[in-house]
């Protein structure tokens, strides 16, 4: 029984790592870009959380639609359309399609920040989304 549960646990852990792998590799790409200008840059989930939850100059914040807790399902603020949880820990298909990720960062950063997000901001946000707690 013990052996079986260990195998199950290992499987679950591997599945988890696999799920988050796409988001992690997207974050790595952003980190490389960010370090072109800030050599010692590192992604900070707390900075990502602040960026995610507070207004960045426009009317909406990321959390207006995605809720304060990105592991929860959200709702489009004007149309009311349901939005699956943004965190890849809740919605495994998140960040698996780079074209889609780029498209949504471009659009939503336009709405929230009024410009495209920097690589550093994207890395911070993904670090926040990958946090298992909070």
């Amino acid at each position: 029984m013990g052996r079986l549960s260990v195998v199950a646990l290992v499987l679950v852990v591997f599945a988890r790592v696999g799920i988050a792998a796409d988001a992690r590799s997207y974050m790595e790409t952003q980190l490389v870009l960010a370090r072109e200008t800030q050599v010692a840059f590192n992604a900070d989930p707390d900075r990502g959380a602040r960026f995610f939850r507070t207004a960045q100059g426009e009317d909406w914040s990321c959390s207006s639609c995605h809720t304060e807790d990105p592991r929860e399902a959200g709702e489009h603020i004007t149309t009311g359309k349901a939005i699956d949880a943004l965190s890849p820990l809740s919605t495994p298909s998140r960040f698996t399609d780079t074209t889609k990720t780029d498209k949504w960062f471009r659009r939503n950063c336009g709405d929230v920040v009024g410009r495209e997000c920097t690589a550093a901001e994207k890395a911070d946000v993904i670090a926040f989304l990958l946090q298992p707690t909070r």
Partner: peptide, 12 residues
């Protein structure tokens, strides 16, 4: 589409 009812909905 970049100004789609107050939201950026631009496409490739």
């Amino acid at each position: 589409l970049p100004e789609h009812f107050g939201s950026d909905a631009s496409l490739s």
